[in-house]
């Protein structure tokens, strides 16, 4: 017996110019915050952008977006609703606020199912908010969407960067392009991560300050884009756009 879904995935994504996975070895470093703000910023600059939350067991982007009462439309598949200018897809449409206790194989299956049935149409960017770690999600994306680019988020902590090193080693082995590293929640002027990123031969995309106002901006997109985080991500978005010319 053959699983017919895999064969159609590249066709489903064929209208998308660039697919960017926002990723990190650790949780809580700001992947969802960076992914959501980056997607919103690109959309505001006039690009057609999708946001796909594949942290199925702990989705967060819908809360950052304040997405409520939206559902995909059933039309030869599922057409994502537009939320603040983003074509937005998440498992929350199907589980609401309930827990989704999924094991690795279920996570893969759910991802394959959504990649099979989601009709993204034409997009300049699809930003993917990843779960933490180097497990099923990364391996599946690499297997299913070969032409994905990774944007790596770390905090200034060596504990976070240690997992970044492992992730970078894996991605290099898999020959996957890495746009660069974002250092989030910066509280001082230490240059440790800048140097470490350089040693790995990667682009340091910039630092995002720890901004206590972010908590208050969760669910309020206009406010979020005006925080120090939102402003810094505007610069990072420019590097992401330009990175196209550098991708291997």
């Amino acid at each position: 017996m053959v699983d017919p879904r895999i064969s159609v995935i590249s066709h489903r994504l064929s209208g998308i110019s660039r697919i960017i996975a926002v990723s990190s070895g650790k949780g809580g470093v700001g992947k969802s915050m960076v992914a959501t703000t980056l997607a919103l910023t690109l959309a505001k600059s006039g690009y057609r952008v999708g946001l796909f939350d594949i942290d199925f067991t702990s989705p967060s982007t819908h809360i950052i977006l304040g997405a409520q009462n939206v559902q995909p439309k059933e039309e030869k598949g599922l057409v994502p609703p537009t939320v603040h200018g983003l074509e937005y897809m998440s498992l929350i449409y199907f589980v609401g606020d309930n827990p989704a206790p999924l094991r690795g194989a279920d996570v893969s299956n759910a991802l394959i199912e959504l990649l099979t049935v989601t009709q993204w149409g034409t997009l300049d960017f699809l930003v993917i908010d990843m779960p933490p770690g180097i497990g099923d999600a990364i391996l599946d994306l690499v297997r299913l969407i070969k032409r994905i680019e990774f944007l790596i988020v770390t905090t200034p902590s060596l504990l976070a960067f240690e997992t970044v090193k492992k992730q970078v080693a894996l991605l290099c082995e898999l020959k996957m392009p890495i746009i660069g590293v974002v250092e989030n929640m910066k509280m001082d002027k230490a240059k440790g991560i800048t140097g470490e990123t350089g040693k790995l031969g990667l682009v340091y995309l910039g630092e995002i300050p720890f901004d206590p106002q972010v908590e208050d901006a969760i669910g309020d997109v206009a406010k979020l884009l005006n925080t120090a985080v939102g402003k810094k991500i505007r610069q990072i978005a420019d590097s992401v756009i330009l990175a196209k010319k550098r991708a291997p």
């Binding site: 699983d3 199907f94 989704a100 206790p101 999924l102």
Partner: peptide, 30 residues
């Protein structure tokens, strides 16, 4: 739409756990 979300809604009839395996009959096969 996504058969895996069965883990959100269905529980083992004996012990109430959502940790079950979908042994067969999940989706579409060729």
């Amino acid at each position: 739409f996504v058969p895996e979300v069965a883990h959100t809604y269905i529980k083992c009839p004996k012990c109430g756990s959502p940790d079950f395996e979908i042994v067969c009959g999940r989706g579409v096969w060729l």
